[in-house]
């Protein structure tokens, strides 16, 4: 019964990448996936709300009036590339290359900051210059809540990765810091997945309908 939780012998575990090298790290990563599944449900409810309210513009600006291709594509490309650089950081982690890991994580959070800046600028333009704040219509409430929740997640991810960078600088790549860096990477890719659906369900659909 000793191997009941995860049927893996210590010898086999040593063949795994470092973030899986302790049973605790292994279990925490599985737990993090469960958290991401719950996040998926959270965003699912917000998508459902937005899609129903999309047409309820109360005589105010519509999706077509507001959304512009340039800024939206800039946000999308920045986030896609940051997901790529985050993937490179996981590779450096598995090569036990501390400098490479820290470097790519820095690039990732810089791109994350650019994304948040672009999104804040977009929100500001809508709310102040276009007369389309959150309270203007049900469509805009749904829009700001869905995109605001995603933007908050990205901002939180930036703060989290900064914390991990400090730990990596201090302690180097250990089974614990490796597991944390890997989980932050999962979180970052997950936010990119959510953005793919925001891009499709909010912006592209807004231009089509």
């Amino acid at each position: 019964m000793t191997d009941a939780t995860l049927s893996l012998h210590e010898k086999d575990r040593s063949q795994m990448p470092i973030e899986y090298s302790t049973e605790e790290g292994d279990l925490r990563i599985v737990g993090f996936w469960i958290f991401l599944a719950a996040e998926l449900v959270l965003f699912g409810t917000l998508f459902g709300t937005y899609l129903v309210l999309q047409s309820h513009t109360a005589g105010g600006p519509t999706a077509k009036d507001l959304f512009e291709i340039g800024p939206v594509m800039a946000e999308t490309i920045v986030l896609l590339v940051s997901s790529f650089t985050c993937g490179l950081s996981t590779i450096e982690l598995r090569r036990h290359n501390k400098r490479g890991l820290i470097g790519w994580l820095l690039v990732t959070i810089l791109l994350g900051l650019v994304f948040v800046g672009l999104e804040v600028n977009e929100f500001y333009t809508y709310a102040v210059h276009e007369g389309a704040p959150l309270s203007r219509s049900a469509f805009l409430s749904g829009f700001f809540v869905l995109l605001g929740t995603h933007g908050c997640h990205v901002s939180l991810g930036i703060v989290w990765i900064i914390g991990i960078l400090l730990q990596l600088g201090k302690r180097g790549i250990t089974p614990v810091t490796a597991r944390k860096a890997f989980m932050a990477g999962l979180y970052w890719h997950f936010l990119d997945v959510v953005w793919i659906f925001i891009f499709t369900a909010v912006y592209l659909t807004g231009w089509v309908i």
Binding site: L6, L8, L36, A37, V41, C86, G87, F190
Partner: peptide, 20 residues
């Protein structure tokens, strides 16, 4: 990017994410 099929027993995370 997310290596969803990696891990010691990836079936656990796959079931979780599929349910999500």
């Amino acid at each position: 990017f997310m290596h969803v099929t990696e891990g010691t027993e990836p079936v656990h995370q796959l079931m979780g994410i599929l349910f999500g």
